[in-house]
């Protein structure tokens, strides 16, 4: 299955029954798949007139504390940009994205199998925290095909969906909103959201470390770039260079402590991205000045090759500026 189709099927198996979206490359296969499958399971597929309308249909979900999963298959920007793979929305996904004082929980899968399991977890965690969760992929992941296995849901016990519109029969009326004109009341609302964010930071960090035990240079990458880096690391190891990788699986909350743990003995970190260095800030926060943080990136839809990563890493070993 392509990444787009696999994510759509995972969403349905995780219980997703309402979808709002607008087809646009490189994620068009996702709404296409949903339009076919959702009616089969008694769900609603609604093609919005634009991406903006689609997210409005989800109704300021962060502020109103509604659980939803947003899939962003990134392409080159800014603005309309192009349609080739990119990781240019890292800031948008992890630092803000919208108005207000909140965060999304953001998963960054690097294989299609992982996209499937993270999408299913995303639905559970959106329910658990009543907070939007994002699956952050890129055009390459959306278009690529790999074999996948669909496993049962995590079995996490989910809270009752008290926010759902059910006609209010036999229960008090729900008032779900993000408008609080009294600053005291809005502060209280924000503090409650923040309490949940702090709980996510404490409990939901996921990270993979790869050959870091004896590494002198550690590459930091997520998504498609991380698997390209795995091949680069294999080549570099064959040539005798001690290289490893830290791969954030959640980019919010970011795995800062993993960096704290290994920074001291390292020569350098090398952040590799399909952007001009949006994750570098988070890596520097984790490293906290204990080792130099270098960067290599391609942007605008250009995918870095493993040769480029090999060359760049060797250059750092030789200390060539």
């Amino acid at each position: 299955m392509t990444g787009n189709e696999a994510i759509a099927e995972a969403a349905i198996q995780a219980g997703c029954r309402h979808f709002f979206g607008y087809p646009i490359t490189p994620q068009s296969e996702l709404p296409e798949y949903m339009s076919k499958r959702l009616p089969e399971v008694g769900g609603v597929f609604l093609q919005a007139e634009s991406e903006v309308a689609a997210i409005n249909m989800l109704f300021g979900a962060a502020g109103a504390e509604l659980p939803c999963v947003i899939v962003n298959i990134m392409r080159g920007g800014p603005g309309l940009g192009g349609i080739q793979p990119s990781q240019s929305d890292y800031f948008q996904a992890t630092k803000g994205g919208g108005h207000g004082d909140y965060h999304l929980l953001v998963f960054a899968p690097h294989t299609i199998q992982e996209a499937v399991s993270l999408t299913m977890d995303a639905f559970d965690l959106a329910d658990k925290y009543r907070n939007p969760v994002m699956v952050l992929g890129d055009g390459n992941m959306g278009q690529m095909m790999e074999p996948v296995v669909f496993k049962k849901n995590s079995g996490l016990k989910l809270p009752e969906k008290r926010w759902a519109l059910t006609g209010a029969k036999g229960r008090p009326v729900n008032l779900i909103k993000s408008l609080y004109l009294d600053p005291q009341a809005l502060e209280k609302h924000n503090l409650e959201i923040n309490r949940k964010i702090q709980e996510m930071i404490a409990n939901e960090v996921r990270v993979e470390t790869y050959s870091v035990e004896d590494a002198e240079i550690v590459i930091v990458a997520y998504g498609t770039v991380a698997r390209i880096a795995k091949t680069a690391i294999r080549v570099l190891r064959e040539r005798g260079f001690k290289v490893g990788m830290i791969r954030p699986i959640t980019v919010f909350p970011f795995p800062y402590s993993t960096f704290e743990e290994i920074s001291g003995d390292l020569r350098k970190f090398l952040v590799v991205e399909m952007s001009l260095g949006q994750m570098v800030e988070d890596v520097k926060l984790g490293v906290c000045g204990k080792a130099p943080v270098e960067f290599y990136g391609r942007t605008g839809g250009v995918v870095p090759t493993y040769d480029e990563i090999v060359t760049e890493t060797e250059r750092l070993f030789k200390g060539v500026p």
Binding site: T25, P26, I83, Q84, G139, N140, Q143, M144, M145, E146, T224, R227, I228, A229, K230, T231, A232, R234, V303, T305, Y306
Partner: peptide
């Protein structure tokens, strides 16, 4: 992985296939 872009029938197209006993790193 397919090449994809603003292309049409009669234009150029390509795809890359990797087959391996071990986990595949770079698909590119």
């Amino acid at each position: 992985i397919p090449s994809y872009g603003p292309e049409m029938r009669g234009g150029t197209a390509n795809c890359t296939v990797v087959i391996s006993d071990e986990e595949i790193g770079s698909p590119v």
